[in-house]
């Protein structure tokens, strides 16, 4: 903008921005407030931010207090946590291994492999529902934790991010290590990886967010209620599979619980999120 941006114009800008902030943030505030309302006050005063009467029973049900286990949200939470941790750890390790090899190691077929990674990245996720189901059934692991976790252990976009990062750092340090006689893995593990911290943080965040929010993969590879994650459980809760009535406080509370971990991560690592958005990342 130019120097002319002064006075009333700046005020107008603030008005526009505040208006948009309300549109973008108010739904979350309503969500928090509603999770502490009673079923009837949720629909009677949908806009109010102060629960009246204040009713924590939705949260009691979420945390399984009081013996009502019709909606086992804690079980879902446990599944989500375990799967997210395993997938994130594996992705960070395997993606950087592969990214490093594609960037630095000279071996026959490297160009072909990288080309394949690029091609794989353009395959839309929604076209993979039936393929994933077919393979998982073929291997006889349909409806197991293996089916949920194994296909997510490596992602092409993560490999790509790591390769791009390794391309951008100088080779000299590694060469020194190599001359000192360190093996390839040794060099990778104790010399290169520590230098790759920023990229590893970005990759960790993207993997965490991606596997925590994952939906379609679990939808087509599982069916047991015991294998539901927060996201798939929430989806079945929302589409009315579990219990009658609108149950808005419960649904919005569960949705909030699903949002919180990624939100915390987001506020703690905003800069990396922004970098992720501009450099590519995870398939939703």
């Amino acid at each position: 903008m130019t120097r002319r941006t002064t006075g009333w114009k700046l005020i107008l800008f603030y008005v526009v921005l505040v208006l948009f902030s309300v549109i973008y943030l108010y739904p979350f505030l309503i969500q928090i407030a509603t999770s502490f309302k009673t079923d009837s006050s949720a629909t009677d005063s949908p806009l109010s931010l102060i629960p009246h009467p204040f009713d924590p029973s939705a949260w009691k049900r979420i945390f399984g207090i009081g013996g009502d286990n019709s909606v086992p949200i804690m079980r879902w939470l446990g599944n989500s946590v375990v799967i997210t941790l395993v997938v994130t750890a594996a992705r960070v390790f395997f993606d950087s291994l592969a990214g490093y090899a594609l960037s630095r190691l000279r071996f026959r077929g490297r160009g072909f492999l990288f080309g394949t990674v690029l091609a794989v990245m353009s395959v839309p996720g929604v076209a993979l529902l039936i393929p994933k189901f077919l393979m998982v059934s073929y291997l006889g692991i349909y409806d197991t934790y293996s089916a949920m976790v194994l296909p997510l252990l490596v992602d092409a976009a993560g490999v790509f991010i790591m390769k791009q990062f390794f391309d951008s750092i100088p080779v000299s340090v590694e060469e020194a290590a190599r001359i000192d006689g360190a093996g390839v893995f040794r060099t990778f593990w104790s010399v290169v990886l520590p230098m790759a911290r920023p990229a590893l943080i970005t990759l960790t965040i993207l993997s965490f967010q991606g596997s925590w929010n994952e939906f379609t993969h679990f939808l087509v590879t599982t069916q047991s209620p015991e294998l539901k994650t927060l996201v798939t459980g929430l989806a079945s809760l929302a589409s009315g599979d579990l219990g009658a009535g609108s149950q808005y406080p419960l649904k919005l509370g569960a949705a909030l619980l699903t949002t919180i971990p990624v939100a915390l991560l987001f506020f703690a690592f905003q800069r990396q999120f922004v970098r992720g958005a501009n450099e590519g990342g995870d398939k939703g």
């Binding site: 989806a235 909030l256 939100a263 939703g284």
Partner: peptide, 15 residues
Amino acid sequence: FYFPSVTSSIAISVV
């Protein structure tokens, strides 16, 4: 403005 884009699509749909 950016926050809604990082949350779970399912959770947002419920809202």
